[in-house]
Amino acid sequence: MMSLTLEGVVLIGALGLIVIGALGMAISNHLFRMLLALVLAESGANLLIVLSGYRVGASAPILGFGDPTAPMVDPVPQVLVLTAIVIGVGVQALAVALLLKVYRVYGTLNVRELRDRMDADVATAAGVEADASQDAPAGERPLPPVPAHASVGSGGFGRRGPVPFPPQSDERRP
């Protein structure tokens, strides 16, 4: 059993924030919640950097308060974090601006819907048919045979449906 020290406790806190932030960015479906998770991870990183300059039993790096002969904590990590926090809020505001713009153009912040709509936009700009499923094999790869109960005329590039092979829809291929 590890003994409970201040730096150990704070280390757990910093790591917890980083991991929760990374997890949130991985599992969120909503861009705004991703932004919140990013803020959490950034806070955890800042805490970790300040922790690296901590010295047990030392005083704050300001002269004129307390015992002048006592050791001081390392001030360099504090300086780095000081600017990083303010930069962080600037970057956060930039992210908010981008979210506003995305919402104005696409009308949603859900990651999956956004991907679908962006795909549709790209396909429209390229002048190709947009509704090809991502799961359907592309190009000239052979496809599994059509089950017997599939009626002859119903093949085609449906959203989820299987593409019949060999037959009757060859002329549709580019």
Partner: peptide, 19 residues
Amino acid sequence: LLSQLAFGTPPMRVGSEIL
């Protein structure tokens, strides 16, 4: 990784020089 580091006794020399 981080439990290998000696938190609480910073080894950085720049900080002590500046202090």
